[in-house]
């Protein structure tokens, strides 16, 4: 009996680091799955808010996690451009014909009326670098087995101190995640609608975001003509292009 208890205790002790290692490995896979050297795509952002529906279309290119370019093409917002480089986010609006730096509390504002804030678009570091993951078990998400990862920020200055991820056990795609405030209150929800096998990895091409502080609001992002790891010139991310 004593031997059985000792064996169970040993197994439990061994299981803790093993589970932790699994969580870190899963998160590393998530990072690599969503990482790319470059991307080019055309996108649609469908915003539903207070019973109204707004559809915005855009074209985007990005290089690594630090450089990206978005230009809106729908009639209402045509010509509005965003440039992220050197960890900063700039916007050029055809109304003002001026480049504006989005910084400080402005980063908390909704991007183009969507459920995404500017800040959500400028994180440069990987999740593994910013969070300590813990595997909380498995759950069923829309009929798929998913690992539940709880991520606690490594530093108390992280924008979202806690995240919970549901990672597809088969493809290691993020099926769902939740973002939390410091108090532990849930702020935002993400759900994967569709992913595609691109370049040997499952890449999210359609997903839904909900800002839980905006009642009756959701935003669906859909990407098409996605090209990963294509060469992009430096001029694609230049201030000159933003101001043209």
């Amino acid at each position: 009996m004593k031997r059985t208890i000792a064996a169970c205790a040993l197994a439990a002790l061994l299981a803790i680091p093993a589970l932790a290692q699994d969580a870190a490995a899963i998160l590393a896979h998530v990072d690599s799955n969503e990482g790319y050297s470059s991307i080019s795509y055309k996108g649609t952002m469908t915003i539903e808010y207070r019973g109204k529906r707004f559809v915005k279309t855009f074209e985007s290119v990005a290089r690594g996690r630090n450089e990206s370019w978005v230009e809106f093409t729908n009639p209402e917002d045509r010509g509005t451009r965003y440039l992220k480089r050197d960890g900063r986010l700039y916007v050029w609006s055809p109304d003002t014909e001026e480049v504006m730096l989005i910084s400080g509390h402005l980063l908390k504002e909704s991007m183009m009326g969507s459920d995404l804030s500017y800040e959500d678009t400028i994180d440069s570091e990987t999740l593994s670098a910013r969070y300590v993951p813990a595997l909380k078990g498995t759950e069923d998400v829309d009929g798929r087995k998913a690992y539940v990862l709880e991520l606690i920020a490594r530093k108390k200055t992280e924008s979202y101190p806690k995240q919970v991820l549901w990672v597809d056990a088969e493809t290691l795609s993020v099926l769902r995640f939740e973002l939390y405030a410091l108090s532990g209150a849930r702020l935002k929800d993400y759900r994967l609608v569709r992913s595609e096998l691109i370049g040997g990895r499952f890449f999210p091409v359609e997903f839904e975001m909900r800002d839980l502080l905006r009642k009756g609001s959701r935003t669906v992002f859909a990407m098409r003509e996605v090209q990963l790891d294509v060469p992009l010139p430096d001029s694609a991310f230049s201030m000159r292009r933003l101001e043209q």
Binding site: G87, R88, S103, G104, H105, L107, K108, E119, K156, T157, E158, S159, Y160, P161, L179, A181, L182, S183, A185, L187, L213
Partner: peptide, 13 residues
């Protein structure tokens, strides 16, 4: 220098 200030989301009931 903006990166010297970090912003942590908070929601208080």
């Amino acid at each position: 220098f903006a990166p010297a200030v970090r912003h942590v989301n908070q929601l208080i009931d």
